[in-house]
Structures are given as C-alpha cells and as structure tokens.
C-alpha cells in the first residue's frame, strides 16, 4: 500500500495556503498508510552562501541550542536553529560536509534528514493527521510540497524508515511499492561510499539517485536509469528545488493519478486525495504512463 501525494503551485498567490491545501490530501491517504507519515516542504529559501539542514532526534525535548552553540564555536560560523516538533531547521553559512562530519562525531543520535536551500523534511511514526499537527504544517506557506503515508511492508515502522528520503541538495524521494533487488544494490552502493541508516528499500532507491546525481547524471537521467537498475514495483515522486517529478516502473501496477489546473499541479496515489483541492472538479486528470518521466518546475 502506502500513499503518495504532491502539490505544486503554479499560481504564486496560493503560496500562503500551501499547508492548508495539502492537509486534506495527506489525510485522505491515511488508510493507505497509517504507520508513519512525512512531508518535504519547499519554503523560506536561504541565502546562496547558507545551507539549511533538517535534523531529527528521538527525544522531542532535545536541546537544539547545544548544537547551535557547538557548531558556531567549532566551525566559526553563524547558525540559527528553529525547533519544530522533534525536528529542527538549522541554517548556517558553514560548509555542509563540515557540519555533517561534526554532527556525526559529537551528536551521532541526531539524524540529518534533509539539506539544501529551500527543502524542509519532517517525518514521524503515527497517523498522518498527528504528524501534520506535530510539525505545525496547517498554516505553512511555500511553493510546493510532497508527502507520504506509509504502510510498512518490508522493514520496520520507525522514523528513520519513514519517507521522504533526502537524495541531495533540495532533493527528496517518496515511494509507493517495493523493490526486490535492494539488498544487492545496497552492497554495491556501499562499495561506492554511500551510507545507510536502515534496511529500508526506499533508502536504497534514494541512495541510488544520490549517487547518480553526484556522479554527473541529471535528475531526468537518474530517473530514467532507475527504470533498468531497480527491480520491483514503484511509483516515485521526487521533490526538487523548483518542482517535482514522477516516474513509474514499466509494469505500472502501483497506482498514480495526476491533475492539473491553471493554479496547480497535483499527483496522488488515488484521485480522492486530489478531490479536496479547489477547482479539482474542473481539472485535467490522467494516469501517468509507465517508464515516462513527468516533471514540473524545470530541473528534471
């Protein structure tokens, strides 16, 4: 099962309503995925010289100020932290790799769930409605957002196993389906230097994309090569800095439907998630074809 949903605003006037418009979409997919939920929202771009980190910790009362002060001291940089649920958005002008190295050394219990200039990733076990509330997304504004409701089938119900998975700067992946060659592929990618936190199949797909992008592929090329290198069933929704992309495996038995109006583009596992959007009744609606990369907002 699992449900995936994405909303990209074509009309900038709707930006302040992004969180409110997306909420019923995610919640409608609860019975496809009641185990955990997550979203990647694109908002509040940082300066070019800065990097935004989405960090998570199991303890909701974790003192993020410690990290703020520690980083500023160690890396002689500027930092700001904003606690949201058991996550924190850290913005800093320090080098991304230095921050990650330092966190790994001194705060190994802190998970880096996303990095970039605009992306913020929030994910947690529990019902989608609770997750949405925990991260104060109701009144969130932004340009686009993707989400996932998970019914765990091949690995444990944990926050680390929840989607979206980051795949690079401002990039993330959500997945409906199951991969059958993820163990072999994980080993291959480990040899290439990729690191893994879970036994989850989607994490492998995300690492695969990350590796492809780091080694010179464009997003479109990475998605196209995934069609031959990944075995199994999948509909992928990939969030990018300025839009999103959709691709389905060649058999295409994991549902997907797309809708477009003058104001927005939406993708969902089932149309009922889209039905809540203003103007959905008049939208152009179709099922994306297998093995074909669809993208909005450029980049792919």
């Amino acid at each position: 099962m699992c449900g995936i949903v994405g909303l990209y605003l074509k009309n900038p006037k709707l930006k302040p309503k992004l969180g409110a418009m997306f909420k019923p979409m995610l919640i409608e997919m609860t019975n496809r995925g009641p185990d955990s939920a997550g979203v990647a929202i694109y908002r509040n771009p940082t300066k070019k010289s800065e990097t935004k980190f989405s960090l998570a910790h199991d303890d909701a009362n974790y003192d993020w100020k410690k990290i703020d002060v520690g980083l500023e001291k160690a890396l002689k940089c500027d930092c700001s932290v904003k606690k949201i649920g058991n996550h924190c958005i850290l913005v800093t002008n320090a080098k991304e790799t230095s921050v990650i190295k330092l966190l790994k050394q001194h705060h190994p219990e802190v998970r880096v769930v996303g990095t970039g200039n605009t992306i913020e990733i929030f994910k947690e076990t529990g019902l989608p409605a609770n997750v949405y509330e925990k991260f104060h997304l109701d009144d969130a504004s932004g340009t686009h957002i993707i989400g996932h409701t998970r019914m765990a089938t091949e690995s444990a119900v944990t926050t680390a196993g929840s989607h979206p998975f980051a795949t690079g700067a401002d990039l993330c992946l959500v997945h409906n389906g199951s991969l059958s060659n993820h163990n072999r592929l994980r080993e291959t990618l480990r040899k290439e230097g990729m690191e893994f936190q879970t036994e989850n199949d989607t994490e492998v797909a995300a690492a695969y994309m990350t590796h492809k992008l780091r080694t010179g592929s464009t997003l479109k090329q990475a998605l196209e090569s995934s069609l031959t290198d990944l075995d199994g069933f999948f509909t992928f929704l990939v969030g990018t800095g300025d839009g999103f992309a959709v691709v389905r495996d060649p058999i295409a038995c994991k549902h997907a439907v797309m809708a477009e109006t003058d104001d927005w583009v939406a993708m969902a596992t089932e149309y009922r998630a889209i039905a809540h959007l203003p103007g959905a009744d008049k939208a152009k609606i179709w099922e994306p074809e297998p093995s074909k990369v669809y993208s909005w907002g450029g980049n792919a």
Binding site: E270, Y271, R272, I274, A275, H276, D281
Partner: peptide, 25 residues
Amino acid sequence: PMGQHSIAVGLDGPLQIDIKGHVGF
C-alpha cells in the same frame, strides 16, 4: 463523488445513474 471508491456497484435493474464528478476505483 469526491473520488470515492465503489460508487454504484452491484446494481441489478434498469436504473439510470448520473455521477456528477470524478470517481475512484
């Protein structure tokens, strides 16, 4: 209809049903 599933299933008789909108599975 709001994209809901199984609308007007298992009908047995000469009815005329008009569903005003998009349906689910």
